[in-house]
């Protein structure tokens, strides 16, 4: 008697669940593949890698299985794909300048290099999307070669000329330019062959102490890091490369209350010797943060002294 009633209950619940899923699935707008405007046009070998590892989310060629279209899984997949396309879409490659294409590829290669892409929840269901070391090496070789062949047109930040306007040295998030860092200690110096620049990175006393004590996850409030960036100049006979033109100066200010939405870091960048603040509005910080997530192991700071354990 009990068993029969119990079974009936289970059947009713199952029917209700199926109907609910069917209704939800029917009401959910399907994820579509809009026409491509201009596809990534790299070598075939690179295209093959990108297609099997990236295109399901980062292009308009998303391949969906039937179960991907069943709610609520379809909601998650749809949201993830749309967000992925917003960050990088190989089907609208023509909408980016050559410099932006290179910057996107460098970022993508670094995501792959660090094992953050393709995402693990994706490769669990699509093991063939995992990249082999050889494939990662091929992507790295491609982006290095692409950058080397385009060195005659270095990618530089687009800067509004303001020579006849008063200079506003305040970032959209309220961080103002200051020059105190010239009296701070240098944390590291770097050079970048991805964009042909060289940098000196200063830290205030709180930041230096944090590095000395390995106290960087998270960095303490009040820590400030300033990165001064020059274009790499010509190489002399001994192979030394000195700074060329001043490019920009970048600030990272630690305040976990004020900069809550960007993991406690306030970002600012001032371009050219005019120190033109970067960013049209405060949302520029989100782009900074998205990139700095790659450095989460260092409390979101890319450049600190490290060694192999």
């Amino acid at each position: 008697m009990y068993n029969a009633a119990h079974k009936k209950k289970v059947v009713v619940i199952l029917i209700i669940s199926v109907v609910a899923v069917w209704i939800l699935t029917t009401l959910t707008p399907p994820l579509t593949n809009p026409p491509a405007t201009g596809e990534f046009d790299g070598p075939d070998s690179v295209q093959r890698i990108l297609k099997h590892a990236c295109y399901d989310c980062h292009s308009n060629h998303t391949k969906l299985e039937w179960y991907h279209q069943v709610a609520p899984l379809s909601w998650k997949i749809s949201a993830d794909v749309l967000e992925a396309r917003r960050h990088l879409n190989f089907s609208h490659w023509d909408s980016l300048s050559a410099a932006d294409q290179r910057a996107k590829l460098w970022y993508a290669v670094n995501m792959v290099e660090q094992g953050r892409m393709p995402r693990r929840d994706y490769t669990l269901l699509h093991p063939s999307a995992k990249l082999s070391e050889r494939e990662v090496g091929a992507l790295k070789n491609y982006i290095v070669a692409l950058t080397n062949t385009s060195k005659t047109q270095p990618g530089k930040p687009i800067v509004k000329q303001v020579s006849d306007q008063p200079v506003v040295r305040e970032s959209p998030n309220g961080i103002q330019y200051f020059s105190d860092y010239l009296h701070w200690k240098v944390i590291v110096a770097t050079n970048r062959f991805d964009n042909g620049t060289m940098r000196v990175i200063y830290g205030n006393d709180i930041a230096v102490k944090a590095v000395q004590e390995g106290n960087i996850n998270p960095w303490p409030n009040g820590a400030a890091i300033v990165k001064v960036v020059w274009d790499a100049g010509e190489q002399d006979a001994d192979g030394n490369i000195y700074p060329g033109a001043f490019n920009n100066v970048q600030f990272m200010i630690r305040d976990d209350e004020r900069f809550k939405r960007t993991e406690g870091w306030g970002f600012a960048r001032f371009n050219t010797s005019h120190l033109v603040p970067y960013g049209k509005n405060v949302s520029f910080e989100v782009d900074c943060m998205n990139c700095h997530r790659l450095a989460s192991a260092n409390g979101f700071v890319f450049d600190i002294p490290t060694k192999k354990p």
Partner: peptide, 10 residues
């Protein structure tokens, strides 16, 4: 730089 392929660091 262990955190950025494309960069060299002290």
């Amino acid at each position: 730089n262990p955190l950025w392929f494309g960069g060299q660091i002290t």
